[in-house]
Computed example of a mutant assay.
Amino acid sequence: MNLKEVKQLLDAEVLVGEDSLDREVKTVFACDLMSDVLAFVEDKTILLTGLVNPHTIRTAEMMDINAVVFVRGKTPDEETLKLARETGVVILTTRHILYNSCGILYSNGLCGANIVHR
Results as ranks from 00 to 15, higher is better:
106 Y>C: 15
61 E>C: 03
106 Y>V: 15
114 N>I: 15
27 T>S: 07
31 C>F: 01
26 K>T: 10
19 D>V: 02
88 G>S: 06
82 K>M: 10
65 I>Y: 06
117 H>R: 15
39 A>N: 13
41 V>T: 10
82 K>N: 12
51 L>C: 14
30 A>E: 07
33 L>R: 03
100 N>C: 14
74 K>A: 14
27 T>F: 03
11 D>E: 11
86 E>A: 13
91 I>Y: 08
109 G>A: 01
1 M>H: 11
65 I>K: 04
52 V>M: 11
116 V>M: 14
55 H>M: 13
43 D>C: 06
44 K>Y: 13
110 L>S: 09
38 L>P: 14
47 L>T: 01
41 V>N: 12
42 E>S: 12
70 F>V: 02
112 G>V: 14
87 T>V: 13
69 V>D: 04
59 T>Y: 08
115 I>M: 06
90 V>M: 03
71 V>M: 09
24 E>L: 10
95 R>F: 12
92 L>P: 00
1 M>R: 08
85 R>M: 12
102 C>H: 05
19 D>N: 07
93 T>W: 00
69 V>E: 04
9 L>C: 09
4 K>V: 02
117 H>K: 15
11 D>F: 01
53 N>K: 07
8 Q>C: 06
75 T>Q: 04
65 I>L: 08
56 T>S: 15
35 S>I: 10
26 K>R: 13
